[in-house]
C-alpha cells in the first residue's frame, strides 16, 4: 500500500479535519436525542448543538476578576490539541495523512495536553467548583492513561506497530479473522475508557449542574461566549476521536486503502454510520445506568486495565491475535 502524492494527502487532511469539526456537534445531538427518546421525552432537535455553538460564538466573553491571562487562552490550546489529533487517526482512508509523524501514543499525549490545559484553567479563577472539577477530572484522566496505553499495546500487538494506520491495514488484511478474542477484550476495555474520557455516564453526567456530581461541567463554569463554544465543540471532537478510533480498529471494513471515488465515498458513508451507531449506543447506555460514585470509577478503570492486560496475554502467550 503506497501512500498517495503529498497534495492528495494534504487534501485528505483538510477534508478529515473539516469532517470531524463538522460532524462532532451532530453526534452530541444524536446522543442527547437518543437519551431523550429512550426516556420517553421528545428531546432537542438533532441540529440543536450547532445552534448552541452559533449562539455561544455571538455572546460576549466574561472573565472572572481573579483569573489570570491563562483563562482566555487555555480553552483554545485545549481545543487545538484535540483537533491536532485528527490526522494521526484512520478515518475513511489509510494510511492516515500524518500517520508517519505520530502514532497512537502521540494521540494519548495530545489528549493529555488538552486535559492539562482545561484542568489548569479550572483552577484559575479560584472558585471552589473549578478546583473540584479539576481534581476529579485529572483523577479520572490519570487512571485512564494506563488503560489507553495498554489497549494500544494490545491493539498494536498483531501488527507489531503502535501506528493506527498499520493496525487498521493489518486488520483489513486479515479479513474477518481480525475479530479475535484478544481484540474484543481490548476493545471492551477501550469502550470503558471512552465513557470515562468523554465524560459520559456512569463516570460523569454531561447534563448535571449539581456540585456533588459535576466533573467536566464544574471545570467550565467560569466560561462563556466563544471560549465556552470551543470547550463544548472540543468535547464533541473528543468523542468523535475516540469513537472513530474504536470503530476503525474494531470494524475496519469500509476504510479505503486506495484512492478512488467509490471507495472514498463508501469509506465516508460507513464512517458516518459507525460514528452515529456508537453515539446511539452510548445514548442508550446512558439511560440505563446511573452516575457512579467518583471512587467507583477506579473499579471501572481497574476492570479496563485488567481486560487490556488479558487481551495482551491472549495475544502474546497463545498467539490468538495474529
Amino acid at each position: 500500500m503506497t501512500a498517495p502524492a503529498p497534495w492528495v494527502q494534504f487534501l485528505l487532511l483538510v477534508f478529515e479535519l473539516a469532517l470531524v469539526l463538522g460532524i462532532s456537534p451532530m453526534l452530541v445531538g444524536i446522543m442527547r436525542r437518543v437519551k431523550a427518546r429512550s426516556q420517553r421525552r421528545l428531546g432537542p432537535p438533532l441540529l440543536q448543538p450547532y445552534r448552541d455553538l452559533r449562539k455561544l460564538f455571538r455572546k460576549d466573553r466574561i472573565y472572572a476578576e481573579s483569573a489570570s491571562t491563562l483563562t482566555p487562552y487555555a480553552p483554545w490550546v485545549s481545543f487545538v490539541a484535540l483537533v491536532s489529533a485528527v490526522p494521526f487517526l484512520p478515518w475513511f482512508f489509510v494510511p492516515a495523512p500524518l500517520g508517519f509523524a505520530g502514532d497512537l501514543i502521540v494521540v494519548v499525549g495530545l489528549l493529555a495536553l488538552s486535559r492539562f490545559m482545561t484542568a489548569l484553567a479550572a483552577l484559575d479563577a479560584g472558585s471552589t467548583f473549578g478546583g473540584m472539577g479539576s481534581t476529579r477530572d485529572m483523577w479520572i484522566g490519570a487512571l485512564a492513561e494506563p488503560t489507553f496505553l495498554l489497549v494500544i499495546f494490545a491493539w498494536g500487538a498483531p501488527s507489531g506497530s503502535t501506528q493506527a494506520s498499520v493496525i487498521v491495514e493489518h486488520g483489513l488484511s486479515l479479513g474477518l479473522a481480525h475479530l479475535s478474542p484478544a481484540l474484543l477484550l481490548a476493545s471492551t476495555a477501550f469502550g470503558v475508557l471512552l465513557l470515562a474520557e468523554t465524560g459520559r455516564l456512569p463516570v460523569d453526567n454531561p447534563a448535571t449542574h449539581l456540585e456533588l456530581t459535576m466533573v467536566h461541567e464544574a471545570m467550565v463554569l467560569e466560561y462563556t461566549g466563544q471560549d465556552l463554544a470551543v470547550i463544548e465543540w472540543g468535547k464533541g471532537i473528543k468523542f468523535v476521536l475516540l469513537a472513530g478510533l474504536l470503530t476503525a480498529v474494531l470494524l475496519p471494513w469500509g476504510i479505503a486503502t486506495a484512492l478512488g471515488a467509490g471507495a472514498l465515498a463508501l469509506g465516508v458513508g460507513l464512517l458516518l454510520v459507525k460514528l452515529s451507531s456508537t453515539a446511539w449506543l452510548v445514548g442508550h447506555l446512558e439511560t440505563r445506568v446511573a452516575k457512579w460514585r467518583l471512587f467507583r470509577v477506579a473499579d471501572l478503570s481497574t476492570l479496563a486495565v485488567a481486560l487490556a492486560l488479558g487481551s495482551i496475554a491472549l495475544t502474546y502467550l497463545v498467539g490468538v491475535g495474529s
Binding site: 491536532s84 508517519f100 505520530g102 502521540v106 507489531g160 506497530s161 501506528q163
Partner: peptide
C-alpha cells in the same frame, strides 16, 4: 516487526498551524 514512528517536529508544526 515495524514499530511506531514519531516525527515530533511535524506534530509541533501541526499544533502551530491549527493554533
Amino acid at each position: 516487526p515495524p514499530h511506531g514512528s514519531l516525527a515530533i517536529g511535524v506534530v509541533a508544526l501541526l499544533l502551530m498551524v491549527v493554533l
